[in-house]
Design a protein around this nucleic acid. Structure first.
Lengths: 340, 340
DNA sequence: GTGAAAGCGCTAACAC
DNA sequence: GTGTTAGCGCTTTCAC
């Protein structure tokens, strides 16, 4: 079924059929109805490839993320699916496992060539990597923490402010021996991040010096962003910083593992140790105790990213990279002594 | 960058460049190297849309599933990504939430029009639905239990045999009061399924009559395939069938919830109650106790489905629907008294 | 508001 | 083994 066949059947030109189908140009009612009937009878469906070749629009976006196994990214994927759906866009998914080499090369992957733009949840790339990458040739929007002020478009919460909110929470609830559990890498250490800086500043506002926990810098690097990794981190934390009374885990999966680890170790949350995660995954509201965490506006980020891609594709935006702050919320729950 | 420009630069015809790029037709070494150099210098990348329009191949498949939130489907998605990757295919993901209407209409979704074929993990469609659907117009492979012998291609384990293996396990380990927890629907009740028939036959081989558990048919219908739903089902099970000594949960997520529910109720697994799940999700090997379950060869199914799509696309297969039995394994773990 | 026609970049049939 | 060429089905000037 082609436009031509429909045109013949309806006794109009191919142009008119196209106008009816795309809806871009108004068509006289009588003509339109005749065309619609022909379309219906012939079961005509536009050929996406031809349309794309001619128009340069794929009506599809790429979604690059580490792994749908990690709760946070799974939920983010969900949000991107919804946002894309709202714009009639298909979503091509590509996983990187958080692997640096994969993240470096993924934008050149032929399987992502036929998309209008890419939502890229990077976890391994730093500013230098991004600077070294060839221009992607189509809109790419970074989602999340990575290199917020780099050369690419980005949507993310204000990491400094988010860290600050957590530090402030610990400070104002009288915690003075905080420890951080983080899955950061050697390449982009937590200590270099705005989130970290915000955290210690937030503590300092209440006269708490992060150095005071003892044992040097109270940061434990976890091997992975998993429940198991979080759980496994606890004995080390308790051993190295026996006086710990608060833990900031840099991802909810980690935090939920820490929660279990603390339970195993006989420490009560929040009585002995306050606990805060990052990401506000669904399960954070269902754990026992429920988990205080930073909600990073995943859905808003997904929507903003998709919209940005569309705007760039349709050339409504200047070339300068956009960096959208999509906000965050500190969700206080039982793990820091809040009511629900 | 087009083929033409590369051809000019290399001093050959467009045809030769095409031959080099696709690798379909052998090209003399000297020529090939010259072309490759031109490709490199110009940074030429084939235009996917043009290629697809001309060749009719999208080099992409669709993956339709209920929800990447359900562990089983998340892991299946992982397997499909890997299989597609191995063939250089992109994957367009579409979620249905397991909703009947969505599943009925999803194959007509324009966002899935530009794919070579679709791997369809259906949970809601029954034989009549499938028969009533218009011919999809491109390869569609059902993955999982749904309508294995229907008009569409399908890859699935032998449901009767799988059910039988579980019934047999209960029977041979002396369980005589089994209960089933299932998230089946009114429309396609478990009792009509081969898996169920196999289960009761497996029990019968050891002289156990599934009717003997008392209280009518010992099947509890759960509202959803989630941990919470499994957990919530336990009090009802214990109330309705107090003598229960074995539970077959028709999905691992459910089983893991049941595991918790039994713990909450003070019943020990496997001492008081043996428990078997279905699907062998990753977490089944890490719960306490570890979960006995039916491994449905997800990876094999994913690979077979992708291969089938490719074969159909390239017309190497007759029109008759293929129904591939990809086997299963009963993985015995602690929840039925096995060692590991 | 509608028709005629060009051509997006590529593959493949046809020549040699 | 390579050149020439005809479209794949569509959008989009350019006319009227």
């Amino acid at each position: 079924m082609t436009l031509r066949q429909v045109a013949e059947r309806a006794g109009v030109s191919i142009r008119t059929v196209s106008n009816v189908v795309t809806g871009a140009v108004p068509v006289r009612d009588a003509t339109r109805i005749r065309v619609e009937q022909a379309v219906e009878e012939l079961g005509y469906r536009p050929n996406v490839a031809a349309r794309r070749l001619r128009s340069g629009r794929a009506q599809a976006i790429g979604l690059v993320l580490p792994d749908v196994t990690v709760p946070y990214f799974r939920e983010f994927a969900d949000d991107v699916f919804a946002a894309a759906r709202a714009h009639g866009l298909a979503v091509v998914v590509e996983q990187t496992r958080g692997d640096l080499d994969r993240e470096r090369s993924v934008l050149a992957d032929p399987r992502l060539r036929h998309v209008d733009g890419i939502v890229f949840a990077s976890v391994a790339l730093d500013r230098d990597d991004l600077a070294a990458m060839p221009p992607p040739g189509r809109p790419v929007v970074l989602a999340g923490a990575s290199a917020f002020d780099g050369p690419l478009d980005a949507v993310a919460p204000d990491q400094y402010a988010a860290g600050h909110a957590v530090g402030d929470l610990f400070g104002r609830t009288g915690r003075s021996r905080p420890v951080i559990v983080s899955a950061d890498s050697q390449r982009s250490p937590l200590q270099a991040s705005a989130r970290y800086q915000g955290f210690i500043d937030g503590l300092a506002d209440h006269g708490v010096d992060f150095g005071d926990t003892g044992g040097g810098q109270a940061v434990l690097r976890s091997a992975a962003v998993t429940l198991e990794a979080g759980r496994a981190a606890v004995p080390t934390v308790l051993d190295r910083w026996p006086g710990v009374d608060a833990i900031f885990a840099n991802a909810d999966a980690l935090a939920l593992g820490v929660l279990r680890g603390l339970h195993d170790a006989g420490r009560r949350v929040p009585e002995h140790v306050a606990l805060v995660g990052f990401g506000n995954v669904e399960y954070a509201a269902h754990s026992h105790p429920t988990l205080t965490t930073v909600d990073t506006s995943r859905a808003a980020a997904a929507q903003a990213a998709v919209k940005l891609i569309l705007q760039r594709r349709d050339a409504a935006l200047p070339a300068a990279p956009q960096h959208l702050d999509i906000g965050f919320t500190l969700v206080e729950r039982e793990s820091t002594g809040a009511g629900g």
